[in-house]
Amino acid sequence: MSILTEIGEALERGKRKQVVALVKQALEEGMEPQKVLTEGLLPGMDAVGIKFRNNEIFVPEVLVAARAMSAGTEILKPLLAETGGTSLGKAVIGTVKGDLHDIGKNLVKMMLEGKGIDVVDLGVDVSGDAFVQAAIENEAQIICCSALLTTTMNSIGDVVKAAQDAGIRDKVKIMIGGAPVTQEFCDSIGADYYTVDAASAAICAAEILTA
Protein backbone atom coordinates (compact mmCIF):
# COMPACT_ATOMS: atom_id res chain seq x y z
CA MET A 1 0.00 0.00 0.00
CA SER A 2 1.41 3.42 -0.90
CA ILE A 3 1.89 5.98 1.80
CA LEU A 4 -0.73 8.20 0.16
CA THR A 5 -3.28 5.41 0.41
CA GLU A 6 -2.27 4.90 4.03
CA ILE A 7 -2.81 8.60 4.73
CA GLY A 8 -6.27 8.46 3.18
CA GLU A 9 -7.25 5.36 5.11
CA ALA A 10 -5.92 6.70 8.41
CA LEU A 11 -7.91 9.86 7.82
CA GLU A 12 -11.07 7.86 7.10
CA ARG A 13 -10.66 6.13 10.44
CA GLY A 14 -10.03 9.46 12.17
CA LYS A 15 -6.56 8.48 13.35
CA ARG A 16 -5.12 11.94 13.83
CA LYS A 17 -1.74 10.93 15.24
CA GLN A 18 -1.30 8.39 12.47
CA VAL A 19 -2.21 10.94 9.80
CA VAL A 20 0.30 13.41 11.21
CA ALA A 21 3.03 10.77 11.33
CA LEU A 22 2.33 9.58 7.80
CA VAL A 23 2.21 13.11 6.37
CA LYS A 24 5.56 13.85 7.99
CA GLN A 25 6.95 10.60 6.69
CA ALA A 26 5.77 11.34 3.15
CA LEU A 27 7.43 14.74 3.25
CA GLU A 28 10.63 13.26 4.63
CA GLU A 29 10.62 10.84 1.74
CA GLY A 30 10.61 13.83 -0.59
CA MET A 31 7.00 13.85 -1.69
CA GLU A 32 5.59 17.17 -2.87
CA PRO A 33 3.23 18.75 -0.29
CA GLN A 34 0.62 19.36 -2.98
CA LYS A 35 0.67 15.65 -3.83
CA VAL A 36 0.25 14.68 -0.16
CA LEU A 37 -2.76 16.95 -0.01
CA THR A 38 -4.46 16.08 -3.28
CA GLU A 39 -3.65 12.37 -3.44
CA GLY A 40 -3.61 11.55 0.28
CA LEU A 41 -5.73 13.76 2.50
CA LEU A 42 -8.40 14.95 0.07
CA PRO A 43 -9.32 11.48 -1.26
CA GLY A 44 -9.57 10.32 2.35
CA MET A 45 -11.98 13.12 3.15
CA ASP A 46 -13.90 12.42 -0.06
CA ALA A 47 -14.42 8.85 1.12
CA VAL A 48 -15.65 10.16 4.46
CA GLY A 49 -18.12 12.41 2.65
CA ILE A 50 -19.47 9.53 0.61
CA LYS A 51 -19.90 7.29 3.64
CA PHE A 52 -21.59 10.12 5.51
CA ARG A 53 -23.98 10.76 2.66
CA ASN A 54 -24.82 7.06 2.57
CA ASN A 55 -25.45 7.02 6.34
CA GLU A 56 -22.63 4.52 6.82
CA ILE A 57 -20.96 6.88 9.28
CA PHE A 58 -22.32 9.73 11.36
CA VAL A 59 -21.41 13.18 12.61
CA PRO A 60 -18.92 12.07 15.29
CA GLU A 61 -16.96 9.98 12.80
CA VAL A 62 -16.94 12.87 10.32
CA LEU A 63 -15.70 15.23 13.01
CA VAL A 64 -12.91 12.89 14.02
CA ALA A 65 -11.87 12.54 10.39
CA ALA A 66 -12.08 16.29 9.84
CA ARG A 67 -9.80 16.86 12.82
CA ALA A 68 -7.33 14.38 11.42
CA MET A 69 -7.54 16.20 8.09
CA SER A 70 -6.96 19.51 9.80
CA ALA A 71 -3.91 18.16 11.66
CA GLY A 72 -2.49 16.91 8.38
CA THR A 73 -3.11 20.15 6.50
CA GLU A 74 -1.56 22.21 9.32
CA ILE A 75 1.75 20.51 8.53
CA LEU A 76 1.34 21.14 4.83
CA LYS A 77 0.13 24.75 4.92
CA PRO A 78 3.50 26.52 5.27
CA LEU A 79 5.05 24.24 2.67
CA LEU A 80 2.20 24.77 0.26
CA ALA A 81 2.59 28.51 0.66
CA GLU A 82 6.33 28.21 -0.11
CA THR A 83 5.76 26.08 -3.17
CA GLY A 84 2.88 28.18 -4.44
CA GLY A 85 0.23 25.55 -3.79
CA THR A 86 -3.18 27.16 -3.50
CA SER A 87 -6.58 26.27 -2.21
CA LEU A 88 -9.46 25.53 -4.50
CA GLY A 89 -11.08 28.82 -3.59
CA LYS A 90 -12.82 30.63 -0.80
CA ALA A 91 -16.32 30.52 0.71
CA VAL A 92 -18.02 32.45 3.47
CA ILE A 93 -20.54 30.51 5.49
CA GLY A 94 -23.13 31.25 8.15
CA THR A 95 -26.61 30.71 9.51
CA VAL A 96 -28.98 33.49 8.51
CA LYS A 97 -30.41 36.29 10.62
CA GLY A 98 -32.69 35.12 13.42
CA ASP A 99 -31.46 31.54 13.30
CA LEU A 100 -29.14 30.19 15.98
CA HIS A 101 -28.69 26.67 14.64
CA ASP A 102 -25.14 25.90 13.66
CA ILE A 103 -24.73 22.13 13.54
CA GLY A 104 -25.53 21.72 9.86
CA LYS A 105 -23.56 24.81 9.01
CA ASN A 106 -20.52 23.46 10.85
CA LEU A 107 -20.77 20.17 9.00
CA VAL A 108 -20.85 21.94 5.66
CA LYS A 109 -17.83 23.96 6.73
CA MET A 110 -15.87 20.82 7.52
CA MET A 111 -16.86 19.17 4.28
CA LEU A 112 -15.84 22.24 2.28
CA GLU A 113 -12.48 22.29 4.01
CA GLY A 114 -12.19 18.62 3.23
CA LYS A 115 -12.40 19.58 -0.43
CA GLY A 116 -9.52 22.00 -0.05
CA ILE A 117 -11.69 25.11 0.10
CA ASP A 118 -10.84 27.97 2.47
CA VAL A 119 -13.84 28.78 4.60
CA VAL A 120 -14.61 31.96 6.50
CA ASP A 121 -17.13 31.04 9.19
CA LEU A 122 -19.42 33.94 10.13
CA GLY A 123 -21.27 31.95 12.79
CA VAL A 124 -25.00 32.21 13.43
CA ASP A 125 -27.61 34.98 13.23
CA VAL A 126 -25.79 36.60 10.30
CA SER A 127 -27.43 39.45 8.38
CA GLY A 128 -27.45 39.64 4.59
CA ASP A 129 -25.19 42.67 4.71
CA ALA A 130 -22.69 40.82 6.92
CA PHE A 131 -22.55 37.93 4.45
CA VAL A 132 -21.88 40.31 1.59
CA GLN A 133 -19.35 42.38 3.50
CA ALA A 134 -17.40 39.25 4.41
CA ALA A 135 -17.55 37.97 0.84
CA ILE A 136 -16.12 41.27 -0.44
CA GLU A 137 -13.43 41.52 2.22
CA ASN A 138 -12.30 37.93 1.71
CA GLU A 139 -12.76 37.89 -2.05
CA ALA A 140 -14.90 34.80 -1.67
CA GLN A 141 -16.37 33.12 -4.70
CA ILE A 142 -19.15 31.43 -2.76
CA ILE A 143 -21.60 32.43 -0.05
CA CYS A 144 -23.12 29.49 1.83
CA CYS A 145 -26.12 30.22 4.01
CA SER A 146 -28.41 27.97 5.96
CA ALA A 147 -31.61 28.14 7.98
CA LEU A 148 -33.20 25.47 10.10
CA LEU A 149 -36.50 27.19 10.72
CA THR A 150 -39.37 28.00 8.41
CA THR A 151 -39.52 31.32 10.25
CA THR A 152 -35.96 32.23 9.31
CA MET A 153 -35.56 30.70 5.87
CA ASN A 154 -36.89 33.89 4.28
CA SER A 155 -33.79 35.65 5.60
CA ILE A 156 -31.86 33.72 2.95
CA GLY A 157 -33.61 35.91 0.41
CA ASP A 158 -32.14 38.92 2.20
CA VAL A 159 -28.66 37.57 1.49
CA VAL A 160 -29.42 37.31 -2.22
CA LYS A 161 -30.84 40.83 -2.22
CA ALA A 162 -27.86 42.21 -0.29
CA ALA A 163 -25.51 40.67 -2.86
CA GLN A 164 -27.52 42.24 -5.68
CA ASP A 165 -27.57 45.64 -3.96
CA ALA A 166 -23.81 45.51 -3.39
CA GLY A 167 -23.21 44.73 -7.05
CA ILE A 168 -21.38 41.45 -6.41
CA ARG A 169 -24.03 39.08 -7.68
CA ASP A 170 -21.96 38.19 -10.74
CA LYS A 171 -18.89 37.55 -8.59
CA VAL A 172 -20.33 35.11 -6.06
CA LYS A 173 -22.43 31.99 -6.21
CA ILE A 174 -24.95 31.67 -3.42
CA MET A 175 -25.48 28.18 -2.05
CA ILE A 176 -28.31 27.50 0.38
CA GLY A 177 -29.47 24.66 2.59
CA GLY A 178 -31.23 23.67 5.78
CA ALA A 179 -34.17 21.55 6.84
CA PRO A 180 -37.03 23.61 5.39
CA VAL A 181 -35.15 24.71 2.26
CA THR A 182 -36.04 23.19 -1.11
CA GLN A 183 -35.00 23.58 -4.73
CA GLU A 184 -38.25 25.44 -5.35
CA PHE A 185 -37.43 27.89 -2.59
CA CYS A 186 -33.93 28.32 -3.99
CA ASP A 187 -35.37 29.13 -7.40
CA SER A 188 -37.94 31.49 -5.97
CA ILE A 189 -35.40 33.72 -4.19
CA GLY A 190 -32.83 33.66 -6.97
CA ALA A 191 -30.10 31.76 -5.14
CA ASP A 192 -27.77 29.66 -7.28
CA TYR A 193 -27.59 26.23 -5.69
CA TYR A 194 -29.56 24.19 -3.20
CA THR A 195 -27.99 21.04 -1.81
CA VAL A 196 -29.66 18.51 0.40
CA ASP A 197 -26.80 17.68 2.75
CA ALA A 198 -23.28 18.64 3.76
CA ALA A 199 -21.50 16.18 1.51
CA SER A 200 -23.50 17.32 -1.53
CA ALA A 201 -22.75 20.93 -0.64
CA ALA A 202 -19.02 20.23 -0.68
CA ILE A 203 -19.23 18.49 -4.05
CA CYS A 204 -21.26 21.36 -5.45
CA ALA A 205 -18.84 23.98 -4.11
CA ALA A 206 -15.86 22.14 -5.55
CA GLU A 207 -17.60 21.97 -8.94
CA ILE A 208 -18.30 25.71 -8.83
CA LEU A 209 -14.68 26.49 -8.06
CA THR A 210 -13.26 24.18 -10.70
CA ALA A 211 -15.71 25.09 -13.46
Binding site: F58, V59, P60, E61, I103, G104, L107, D197
Partner: peptide
Amino acid sequence: GTQDSLIFSEES
Protein backbone atom coordinates in the same frame (compact mmCIF):
# COMPACT_ATOMS: atom_id res chain seq x y z
CA GLY B 1 -31.08 13.75 14.57
CA THR B 2 -29.84 15.88 11.74
CA GLN B 3 -32.03 16.91 8.87
CA ASP B 4 -31.61 13.59 7.09
CA SER B 5 -30.08 11.13 9.54
CA LEU B 6 -29.18 10.40 13.14
CA ILE B 7 -26.45 12.59 14.63
CA PHE B 8 -24.70 9.49 15.92
CA SER B 9 -24.96 5.82 15.11
CA GLU B 10 -27.59 3.60 16.68
CA GLU B 11 -24.70 1.78 18.38
CA SER B 12 -23.44 5.02 19.93
